[in-house]
């Protein structure tokens, strides 16, 4: 009996903490979305209340959608993030496999060389990167952004994936080799499926900074054709900073697609992160 009471109290406490924190995590976002559909007076006079018939207004959205190609920006961000992500994961896993599986002269050194990128923000090399991009005639292309993000994401990917690859039981590989399976086949058919959970971890870690980066779009691809959502919103806010309807609407527009995507992908994402553990 007593056990049951403590149990219930424990559950209550758990939900209180988790629920409380969830509320805290959501409140700012909800506040922005709620106020983005209100009139200016509504925003200022009663920021905390839901829109009423009186204060309901979509003027901010009308302005934003009329003044900037948001959908297009969103497409750019999506392309850059997804392509970078796939390249980081595939190339990173290949390199991690090579570095942890084959011992050759200089392999340790090479591993250290690749690891340096974790510690140094790639932003410190901006000027040289830009010069290179100009020489390759890649300015204002999404390709330039993808290349930089791949270079930025690889070191961490190689490190995390490498750790996982080392945990793959030796017997598996040796058995395959004895059967005369080629090295490429071993990697793509045995190793890659085994390290899937790590792949998901890396995906989360590399995707977020790419999606949210302001710096490289600003320097390498500021043209309207190639603007990403983050840059687009930043420029838009700079331009309409005093127009709260427009600002809140543009913030909402930047947040909503991420929310929608997240709703669909979160299950995969979280399952991915924890997949290796759930037996």
């Amino acid at each position: 009996m007593k056990h049951k009471v403590t149990r219930a109290a424990g559950t209550g406490f758990t939900h209180l903490v988790l629920g409380g924190y969830t509320l805290l995590a959501l409140f700012p976002i909800l506040l922005v979305i709620i106020n983005s559909v209100k009139s200016k007076d509504g925003i200022f006079d009663s920021p905390l209340s839901l829109p009423t018939a009186e204060t309901w207004s979509l003027v901010g959205f009308e302005k934003v959608l009329a003044k900037s190609p948001f959908i297009h920006f969103f497409g750019n961000s999506l392309t850059v993030t997804l392509v970078s992500l796939v390249l980081i994961l595939v190339l990173g896993a290949m390199a991690a496999w090579a570095l942890s599986e084959y011992k050759f002269r200089g392999s340790k050194l090479l591993a250290i060389y690749m690891a340096f990128g974790i510690m140094v923000p790639i932003r410190l090399g901006t000027v040289s990167i830009l010069e290179l991009v100009v020489k390759l005639e890649l300015t204002n292309t999404l390709t330039a952004l993808i290349l930089v993000y791949v270079a930025q994401g690889l070191p961490l990917a190689i490190m995390i994936l490498g750790e996982f690859i080392q945990q793959v039981p030796k017997e598996l590989k040796e058995a395959a080799r004895c059967d005369g399976v080629g090295e490429f086949k071993i990697f793509f058919q045995i190793i890659l499926p085994l390290i899937r959970p790590a792949v998901a971890t890396v995906a989360v870690f590399t995707m977020v900074p790419i999606w949210n980066d302001l710096w490289f779009p600003l320097i390498l691809a500021p043209g309207e054709e190639t603007q990403t959502v983050t840059l687009g919103v930043q420029q838009f806010i700079g331009q309409y900073v005093t127009d709260w309807n427009a600002v809140l609407a543009s913030l909402s527009l930047a947040v909503l697609p991420v929310l929608v995507m997240y709703v669909f992908a979160s299950r995969q994402l979280i399952r991915g992160i924890t997949a290796g553990a759930v037996k």
């Binding site: 390249l87 190339l91 990173g92 990128g117 790639i122 040289s128 270079a151 930025q152």
Partner: peptide, 13 residues
Amino acid sequence: AFLIYTAFSALPL
């Protein structure tokens, strides 16, 4: 991985 990392991260740094 080596080439992209070298060209777009290591050499610039």
